[in-house]
Nucleic acid binder design. Structure first.
Lengths: 159, 159
DNA sequence: TTGACATCGTTCATAATGTTAACTATAATT
DNA sequence: AATTATAGTTAACATTATGAACGATGTCAA
C-alpha cells in the first residue's frame, strides 16, 4: 500500500512539475507578446518604455541607477538614455556634487508619456482582472505571490 | 452605505490590478533570467535551444512549421536551423513529396542534447515545486490556469 | 495545358537588445 | 602625490528579429 501510494505521489509530482513548466512558459510568452504590442502601440522600443517607467517616484536618476534598475550594462543604459534624450523625453544635467555623475530626469513631454503608459497598463490589468471570477481574484494573486517567492528561493539555491 | 461600499470596491480593484501587474512583471523577469542562465549553461543561443525542444514528439519538422511554432519570421527560422545544422544537432533533407520543402530532423547528437535539456528543465521545475507547500500546489497550478485563460481572453478581446 | 497565383526556403538590409573592453574624467584613499 | 575606484561614453561584437526580394516549385482555373 505504501509502495503504491509513493508511486502515485511520484507521478503526481511529475505531472505537477510538467504542468508548472508549461503554464509558466505560456505566461511568459503572453507577456512577451504584450510587451511587444505595447512597444508598437507607443511606437517606441521596449527598452525605452521600461526606462521611462523607472521615473515613477523618482525626480532624478543617474545612469548607473538606471542600468541597475533595468538590469543591463551601463553602456546599454547610456544608449537608451541618449535615445530618450533625442526624443525629448528625458534630459541630462551635471550633478553639482559629483562631476562624474549625470542626473537624468523626465521632461514635461516625458511626464505626459509616462502617464499615458501608466493609464494603458492600468486599464489592461483592470481588464485582465475583469476576466477573473471575483471570488477567485484573491486566490490568484496569492498563488502568484507564492510562485514568485518559490522562484526566488530556487534562484537563491542555484547561486 | 452603498456609496461607501462601491468606493471600497473600486479601491480593491485598483489595488488588485496593480498587484497583478507587479507580480506578472516579476514572474516575467524571473523567466527571462532563467532562459538566459539556461542558454549560458548549454552554451547555446536561446533561440536554438527553443528550436531543439520543438522536436519533442516530432520526427520531422519543416522550416515553415518551425517558424510557426517559434512564432518568428521564416527568414529567422532559416538562420536558426542553419546554425543548428552547423553544430551537427539537426540535418536537412528534401521532402520527397514536395521539392519546395525541406525536412529537418534531430541528429543523434541533437537527440542527446534534447534529453539533456529536458532533464535540466524537469529537475528545475521539480525544485520549484519543492519550494511550494504541498497543500498549495494544486491551488497554485489552478490559479495559473485561470490567469492564462484570462490573459488569452483579454488578448482575444483586443484583436 | 498554360498562365496566374501561392508557397517554401534563402539571402540581404535593417533594427533592437545586450555584452565586454577600452578610455576619459573625476573622486576617494592610502 | 600616487593609486585605486567610480561614472559615463564609445566601439566592436553577438543575438534576436522583421520585411522585402528572389528562385524554385506546386496548384488551380480558364
Amino acid at each position: 500500500m505504501n509502495d503504491v501510494n509513493s508511486t502515485i505521489d511520484v507521478r503526481v509530482l511529475e505531472y505537477q512539475a510538467n504542468k508548472l513548466q508549461e503554464l509558466i512558459s505560456e505566461l511568459h510568452n503572453c507577456c512577451k507578446e504584450r510587451y511587444s504590442d505595447e512597444a508598437k502601440a507607443f511606437r517606441m522600443p521596449q527598452a525605452e518604455l521600461r526606462c521611462l517607467m523607472l521615473f515613477e517616484g523618482h525626480k532624478y536618476l543617474t545612469g548607473i541607477q538606471i542600468a541597475g534598475l533595468l538590469e543591463v550594462a551601463k553602456s546599454r543604459a547610456t544608449v537608451i538614455i541618449e535615445n530618450l534624450d533625442k526624443k525629448g523625453l528625458v534630459q541630462r544635467s551635471q550633478d553639482p556634487n559629483d562631476a562624474r555623475v549625470k542626473l537624468i530626469n523626465l521632461t514635461p513631454a516625458g511626464q505626459r508619456k509616462v502617464r499615458e503608459i501608466e493609464e494603458f497598463l492600468f486599464s489592461l490589468h483592470q481588464q485582465l482582472l475583469g476576466q477573473i471570477d471575483p471570488a477567485q481574484r484573491t486566490g490568484v494573486i496569492n498563488a502568484l505571490e507564492t510562485l514568485r517567492s518559490s522562484m526566488e528561493a530556487v534562484k537563491a539555491q542555484l547561486s
